[in-house]
Structure formats: structure tokens, C-alpha cells
């Protein structure tokens, strides 16, 4: 028993170390000007990275806000589209249900490059290429499968019975959805929402292609630095990226928690 315990603890600390160490190095790198090879510690420190980000002339902060706004909008749209689809897949019985469940995952099975090329041509025709709206639309492609998948499982657990009960008690379909279905699926919405937000926030290729260089998001600022080997700048942007994602997740959790009370009521 005791031996097992040691093994467990060692494995746990090792895992934590493995997960944390890249982050620590990232933080160090963002303050480092020169860190030549044999040296154990960096030789010179500086604040160039953060200065660059905060400097209005670089427009980094504007890009950051645009990215967050874009991903929030994508998250909202994804959830709006996914809820009805997930309900159909999770609750109703119809022919070809298994096929549709598979089909919904297609965008993440097929490489996005292949799909995006086709979409790009269509978007040029529709006048959506190089626009904010176009980028929002194309972000839905990799996001919807995740959201539908998670929410389908949520609906499978909730089922239809609570809604039936609410209807019988005199609630209209809309009231039932707002008062019963949404609160019941709140935890699922939270996990689907946060996953989708991250997926959208880290899109590089799709934004690059459809945005045509006019819609600049955080990953697009970051990539050139990574490519050119400017580790300081790349690390700084990475940290900002991580912090942004974490803050957004916390905000989302707060909203859901506050809206649907703090009780842990999911006893099903």
C-alpha cells in the first residue's frame, strides 16, 4: 500500500513538472534578450516583448481585442447552431442517425486545408472573402463538430422527460427551453463553449486564408516571430495568448455559475 502511494506521488509530481516546465521556460524566455547555448541561465534580460505588446503604435492590443471579439462571436454562433442539432441527435430517433453523427465530425476528420480551399473560392464569389463575417463563418467549420459532439452527450443524459414535465405544468416550448433545458445543460454549454473558444482563438490557417491578411488575429501576429526565431517576442505573445484564454474561461464560468446559481444540483 505504502509503496503504491510513493509510485503514485512520484508519477503525479513528474506529470505536473512535465506540464509546468514548458510554461516556466516560456515565462523566462519572454524576459530574455540573449540566452546562448552552454549557459544555464540567460545572459541578458529585457522588457522588449511586453513593451512591444503594450505600445499603441504596434496595434497589438487592438489585435488582441479583435481576436477575443471574433472568437466570442464564433463561440456564440457555434452554440446557437449546435444546440438544436445536438438535441436532434441526442433525443430524437430518426433514420440515418448514426450516419449524421459521423457526418458531423467530418470537418475535423478531413484536413481543413482541403476544405478551406473550396470554401475560399465560394467566399470570393459571395463577397465574403477578406471580411470579418467571412472569417467568423469559416471558424464555424472546425468549431461546430466539437460543440455538437459534447452537447449531444449532454442531451442524451438530460433526455426529454424534464421538458415534458415542464410542458405539462403549463410552460410553452420557449419557456421550457429557457427555464428548464438551458439550466440543465449549463455545464455542457460551459465545456463546449470553452473548447470552441480555444479552437477559434488558435485558428491560424483559416483566418489567414479567408481573412486575406486584412483580418489579423493573435496567432497571425505570433507566427512570424516563431518562424524567424525571435524567441522573446514569440514567448511574450504565447503568454498573452494563454492568459487571454484563461481569463475568458474564467469569465464564462462566472457567467454560467451566477446565472444558474451556485448550487451543485446535477444529481442525475
Amino acid at each position: 500500500m505504502k509503496k503504491n502511494n510513493y509510485i503514485f506521488k512520484i508519477t503525479m509530481y513528474l506529470l505536473i513538472f512535465l506540464l509546468i516546465s514548458p510554461l516556466v521556460i516560456l515565462v523566462i524566455w519572454s524576459f530574455v534578450r540573449i540566452w546562448p547555448w552552454p549557459n544555464l541561465l540567460p545572459r541578458d534580460y529585457g522588457l522588449r516583448g511586453f513593451k512591444h505588446v503594450l505600445d499603441p503604435s504596434t496595434k497589438s492590443l487592438r489585435v488582441l481585442f479583435l481576436s477575443v471579439g471574433l472568437s466570442s462571436l464564433v463561440t456564440l454562433c457555434t452554440l446557437l447552431i449546435s444546440i438544436p442539432a445536438a438535441k436532434a441527435l441526442g433525443v430524437y430517433e430518426f433514420r440515418g442517425k448514426g450516419f449524421f453523427k459521423m457526418l458531423i465530425l467530418a470537418p475535423i476528420i478531413v484536413p481543413p486545408v482541403a476544405v478551406a480551399m473550396g470554401i475560399h473560392i465560394a467566399f470570393i464569389k459571395l463577397g465574403l472573402a477578406n471580411t470579418f463575417l467571412g472569417v467568423v463563418f469559416v471558424h464555424l467549420v472546425p468549431c461546430i463538430p466539437y460543440a455538437v459532439r459534447i452537447l449531444t452527450n449532454v442531451f442524451e443524459i438530460i433526455g426529454e422527460s424534464m421538458e415534458m414535465q415542464a410542458r405539462v405544468l403549463g410552460a410553452s416550448p420557449l419557456q421550457t427551453f429557457i427555464k428548464i433545458t438551458l439550466p440543465l445543460m449549463a455545464p455542457g454549454l460551459l465545456s463546449a463553449g470553452s473548447l470552441v473558444f480555444i479552437v477559434s482563438l488558435s485558428q491560424y490557417f483559416l483566418t489567414f486564408l479567408i481573412g486575406g491578411g486584412r483580418i489579423i488575429t493573435l496567432p497571425m501576429l505570433m507566427f512570424p516571430y516563431i518562424q524567424s526565431g525571435d524567441r522573446m517576442m514569440a514567448s511574450t505573445y504565447s503568454i498573452i495568448f494563454i492568459v487571454t484564454a484563461l481569463i475568458m474561461l474564467l469569465i464564462m464560468e462566472r457567467i454560467v455559475r451566477n446565472y444558474y446559481k451556485e448550487q451543485n444540483y446535477f444529481y442525475i
Partner: peptide, 16 residues
Amino acid sequence: EKRGAVIVFQDYLLFP
């Protein structure tokens, strides 16, 4: 919702 016939289900279905 307008019928006024209420079912009490087997598993109570209280809103959690």
C-alpha cells in the same frame, strides 16, 4: 400547456 392535465411521472422529475 393549455390543456390542464398534469402528469406526475414515475421518477418525479423535480427540476434540480
